[in-house]
Computed example of a mutant assay.
Amino acid sequence: MSYGFLSFLLAVLVINLSPGPAMLYVMNQSLRHGVRTGLKAAAGVEFGVFFYVLLAAFGLMLIFKEVPLLYRTVQVAGAFYLVYLAYLSWPRRKGGDGSATSDRSPEPARYAFSKGMLINLSNPKIGLFFISLLPQFVPSDASPAWLYFLIYGLIFNISGILVNMTVGLTAHSLRDAIQRSTWFDYVPPVLFAAIAVFAFIRGLA
């Protein structure tokens, strides 16, 4: 096993284990609507990653390199979507008792897959990985190059599936302990908003 491939595996592990909007969304959906919805959300975010895998494999990511404005537009659009998610996940107050509770309507659960997919399609971390880092791990003399990009991208995708599925499962098992901490309901929207600000800064810089 080459040093370059080991370096690639380490980079994949670090990126997929680092908290981001996709992981946070999976955890939030699992806690609010159960493990099945959490797994749907995980499947959605990884389907979004698979889109980038295909772009990288067939060279379409070069469009973002050649047209930076297009990529910045995607970043800013993603930031607006994160703000929207922050609004949706902010705990609502029940009338009368003044206690803050999360919205548990069936609509968020119904669209867990599609929303998860949109999160990763607009996630700057994933886009930057496939634009900037992935090409550095593929040998310059690789032939056919598209196959290397596809295999490396699928490794990244599979790693993300394992991590996010684990998050969905473990978040559900810790549901009671976490829900006893009422402040935890405010963590997802605050982090969504913080990541959105970071995305705005990167997209407008």
Rank of each mutant, 00 (worst) to 15 (best):
I119P: 01
A205T: 15
V45L: 05
G4V: 13
Y87R: 12
F8I: 08
F137T: 01
Y25K: 01
A193D: 11
Y81T: 02
F149G: 02
I15C: 07
A41R: 01
G34R: 11
P108C: 03
P106Y: 02
G153W: 03
L154A: 02
E66F: 15
V53G: 08
D141S: 13
L55V: 02
A42F: 11
N157F: 14
I63S: 14
P19M: 06
H172Q: 15
S122R: 10
I155R: 05
F149C: 00
R92I: 07
F50W: 12
I151S: 00
V12S: 07
A177V: 10
L24H: 05
F58E: 12
L174R: 05
Y25C: 00
V138L: 04
S99M: 08
S89I: 02
S105G: 10
L54C: 13
R175W: 13
D103T: 01
G168V: 05
T170L: 15
L62D: 15
A145R: 14
Y111C: 02
I155P: 03
L118W: 12
F50A: 11
Y186C: 12
W183P: 11
S140W: 03
L10Q: 10
Y84T: 06
I161A: 12
Y148A: 00
A57V: 02
L17D: 06
P139L: 03
K40I: 12
M117L: 04
P108G: 08
I126P: 07
E46I: 15
L150Q: 03
Q179T: 13
A43K: 06
L60I: 14
S143E: 07
Y25M: 01
H172A: 15
V76W: 08
R72M: 13
L162I: 15
F64Q: 06
L60N: 08
D97G: 01
V187W: 10
V26N: 07
G96A: 00
Y25A: 04
V26F: 10
Y186F: 13
S89G: 00
P139A: 08
R32N: 08
K125E: 04
P144Q: 04
L204S: 07
A22N: 06
S181Q: 15
S114T: 05
V76M: 08
V190D: 03
A196V: 09
Y87E: 05
V190Q: 04
G44I: 01
V83Y: 13
S2H: 09
L128D: 01
P19C: 09
A199K: 14
Q179S: 11
R104E: 12
S181I: 15
F80A: 12
Q179E: 07
T170K: 12
N120D: 03
R104A: 05
F58W: 09
